[in-house]
Design a protein around this nucleic acid. Structure first.
Lengths: 236, 236
DNA sequence: TAAAACTTAATTGTATACAATCTTGTGCGC
DNA sequence: GCGCACAAGATTGTATACAATTAAGTTTTA
């Protein structure tokens, strides 16, 4: 397997085995924008690269499809998903609905151990940025959100948030317009502060504005399709 | 295929083919409580019953696993899921968070066509009850909720609601304590009325109380596990 | 020369064979 | 009769072969 980093933080429908490892590798590559939206993931190609049979590849691709990171097109192949503008809006609307209250809930359940985990996340994120690993930083900032949802200890909603974060990664790959890194530097710090203080209301407000900030950096203008008349353009 | 009714309303990750059909058949059987929580779904057995190869069965089972209707246990097989009491609570908490606002949104977007679809759902539900098909009535009542989420036209949240409704079906199979049918007869009528009037506030309130009603019919007491001393009980 | 028809190659969908793991049954010793 | 070790059988995980479909290339037709 080319990838050595196995993020146990990703949804893993299969418990173990080569298909789980392949799922994790591809998931990581997608989250870190090494595999960009629209990329075709051919079964034989992956089978060659990862030295597993097509069976394993297919299982992993199906799981990625169910994680909504990959779109399977029957008889045509698997492609890294390309969320539409509309879907981008929906995803962030759903995040705005779920994450602030989750942050509040997390604040009410805070432990030293959980705080430590969050701080490690932020630290790792900054390290990745300092090392010029923007993809890794991006993934870690997404996981920061997932970590908060886990602290809130409502696994059904945490599962949804995990999906939304995954989807957001693709949306960001397609629509991000800001030069700087994904999550504004201070936002995560401020969140951790609020969580440390057990201040649910503050955590909730900070998460709201944090999500709005992310959303504001996405270029979600509906691009009017110009009525192209090729004959007029190319005709002589 | 033993089942002729193919509910296009279920999540179908695979677009077509025998695995999609098998997925639909098993999904329907689970939703209608023909396959109960804990039931083992053996690959060879399903392969024999449905006259498809194990490959197709495995694909369908993986999809069912991702729909959270089935739990895959590595090297042990696939089983219809058995949500815990805790998870039951979480699912209904998530439903209480998502569905009322969705009902409000649906009320604001109501069309004659959508109304007609809802009324057909209710009618079919009553027909099933009258015919003593409680499983079918149960599935239809769940789909009524899904239909509302579709009218609300937020596909990300509709997808979550669909998952929650699926999970609810299992929860109901395990924990339902009321003799009567799942959804109180008047509740769906009242909802359709509010939706017809475009009364979002009313729709939201009715959905809230409807979900509370369902929740109240579930026996979610944490069962204290008695410390059973078999020697004392059986010893002479 | 462009479009349509046909052929070939590539890829995905499915079946089947083999390997790995788990469960159940049997035999043996105490 | 019980517990343990081992064997056999059943089932799942994976690899490979074959079938079906799509994409790309080539030839024919107007």
């Amino acid at each position: 397997m080319p990838t050595t980093e196995s993020p146990s933080d990703f949804i893993q429908p299969m418990l173990k085995g080569p298909s789980a490892q392949l799922f994790a590798s591809l998931s990581l590559a997608i989250h870190e924008h090494k595999l960009l939206p629209g990329t075709k993931l051919g079964e034989d190609e992956l089978s060659d690269i990862y030295k597993v049979s097509r069976t394993v590849v297919r299982t992993a691709l199906q799981a990625l499809s169910h994680s909504e990171l990959v779109e399977l097109k029957r008889n045509r192949g698997a492609f890294v998903s390309q969320p539409t503008v509309r879907e981008a809006r929906e995803v962030f609307e759903a995040r705005a609905l779920l994450e602030p209250r989750t942050a509040r809930s997390a604040a009410e359940r805070m432990t030293e151990e959980a705080l430590e985990r969050l701080e490690k996340h932020i630290s790792a994120e900054h390290d990745a940025l300092a090392a010029g690993q923007s993809g890794r930083a991006l993934r870690l900032s997404g996981q920061f959100h997932i970590e908060i949802s886990r602290i809130a200890d409502q696994s059904t909603i945490a599962g949804f948030i995990e999906r939304l974060v995954a989807r957001s990664s693709l949306i960001i790959a397609l629509y991000w317009k800001r030069q700087s890194a994904l999550c504004e530097k201070h936002a995560h710090h401020a969140l951790v502060d609020a969580l440390r203080r057990g201040d649910g209301a503050d955590a909730e407000e900070l998460m709201k504005s944090h999500l709005l900030d992310i959303l504001s950096a996405l270029d979600l203008r509906e691009v009017a399709q110009p009525a192209i008349n090729l004959k007029d353009i190319l005709g002589k």
